[in-house]
Amino acid sequence: MYADGVTGSGRAMPVGLSAALDRLCPGRVRRSVSLAGISRWKVGGPADLLVEPQSAEEISGVLRLCRSAGVPLLVVGDTSNLLFADEGFRGVMMQIGRRMAAVSITGTTVTAQAGVWMPYLAATVGRAGLSGIEHTAGIPGTLGGLVMMNGGSQRRGIGEHVSRVWTIDERGEAAILGQADCRFAYRRSAMQDRFVVITAAELVLERGDARSIRRTIIDIMASRRRKFPLKLPNCGSVFLSDPAMYATVGPPGHAIEQAGLKGLRAGQAQISPVHANFIVNLGGATARDILTLIGIARSTVFDRTGFWLNCEVRHVGPDGTLRPAHEVAATDRAEQTS
């Protein structure tokens, strides 16, 4: 803990910001938070402040306070696609999670807040006899994060079924985007191109048989347990599947395995012996360890195939800068070899 006005790193925090956040979100502001404690990879240094809003109005208020104070703000969900820097984050982290997870169903239309956990949402709509998002059942993330990156599995994306998205911009202003506004593409959306916070989304699904949907979800979960290293901290798939590479070489995990890198370690990080598109934390891994493995995998696969592997994962710098992890890994590798 530290006094209002001073960050965990000793850098000056605008006087009164922490107290203002406490008034806005009482009992839901924490100081000097270990990012390794909230990261699905169990990696990262301390964050100065973490706040958990429970409404769109509170999100807007946090955005306005941080903008007025000139303090970096980072918005996260379940952190499944983030790699936090070992140095931590010098600013305010806003985590949208279980406090914003309401779901309502009217006919075939589902409206859900951004913090709902995807396995729960997939199961809930499945029990209601609605089909279309079974492929998300095993994804350990929140709806907001999935919509932002058009996430999914089996080469599908949640954007197929998104009809509207509620957002708030950096000024704290709310807007509703239609599907065309979102410009969904493979693991992409227009919302990645500018700062917006997703607060809720509307999905239009299809009628289906609840028992059949449940069996599909059970099969997906069983397949994930067989194929993926779920017992060790990881972020899910590290590298994106490139269609051109997929057609000639195969998916990223296959390319990495064929390069002989399965099981390779850097410090306490390892390219999983179970599935090569996963990097696992064996206990005490650092972001630097993980970036080292990303760099080795990319250069080795490129030398063999002529294709560069690009990351789904975003690296979070100490100032909150979000960059694809392969860009950071490439910079680090160049510095090490120069």
Score class of each variant (00 low, 15 high):
Asp289Phe: 04
Asn277Leu: 10
Ile296Phe: 05
Ala201Glu: 04
Asp303Tyr: 11
Ser299Asp: 15
Ile256Asn: 03
Leu205Phe: 03
Thr216Val: 13
Phe239Trp: 08
Val204Trp: 00
Arg224Thr: 14
Lys262Gln: 04
Arg226Phe: 11
Gly178Lys: 11
Ile290Gln: 04
Asp242Tyr: 07
Val316His: 09
Phe278Leu: 11
Gly263Leu: 09
Ile271Phe: 10
Leu293Ile: 10
Glu257Ile: 06
Asn234Gln: 10
Phe239Met: 02
Ile294Val: 12
Gln179Arg: 15
Asp219Ile: 05
Ile217Leu: 02
Met191Val: 07
Phe195Pro: 01
Asp303Thr: 13
Pro318Asp: 15
Ile213Asn: 10
Ile198Trp: 08
Gln179Thr: 12
Ala259Gly: 07
Val301Ala: 09
Ile213Met: 13
Pro252Ala: 02
Phe228Trp: 09
Arg226Thr: 14
Asp181Ala: 10
Val274Gln: 15
Gly178Gln: 12
Arg215Tyr: 09
Met221His: 07
Ala180Thr: 12
Leu205Lys: 01
Asp209Ala: 08
Lys262Cys: 01
Asp209Phe: 07
Arg207His: 13
Gln268Val: 00
Ile213Leu: 11
Gly260Asn: 11
Phe307Glu: 14
Ile256Ala: 02
Pro318Val: 14
Ser223Val: 09
Asp303Leu: 13
Leu205Gln: 04
Gly260Ala: 12
Gln270Lys: 07
Asp181Thr: 08
Ile296Cys: 09
Ser189Arg: 00
Gly236Lys: 00
Leu203Cys: 08
Ala287Asn: 02
Arg298Ser: 09
Gly250Arg: 03
Gly208Ile: 14
Ile218Glu: 14
Ala266Asn: 12
Arg207Cys: 13
Arg215Ala: 15
Arg194Lys: 10
Phe307Gln: 12
Asn310Trp: 06
Val204Pro: 01
Gly267Asn: 12
Arg224Lys: 15
Ala210Lys: 14
Cys235Tyr: 09
Arg211Tyr: 09
Ala269Tyr: 03
Ala244Tyr: 07
Glu257Met: 06
His315Pro: 07
Ile218Met: 11
Met245Gly: 09
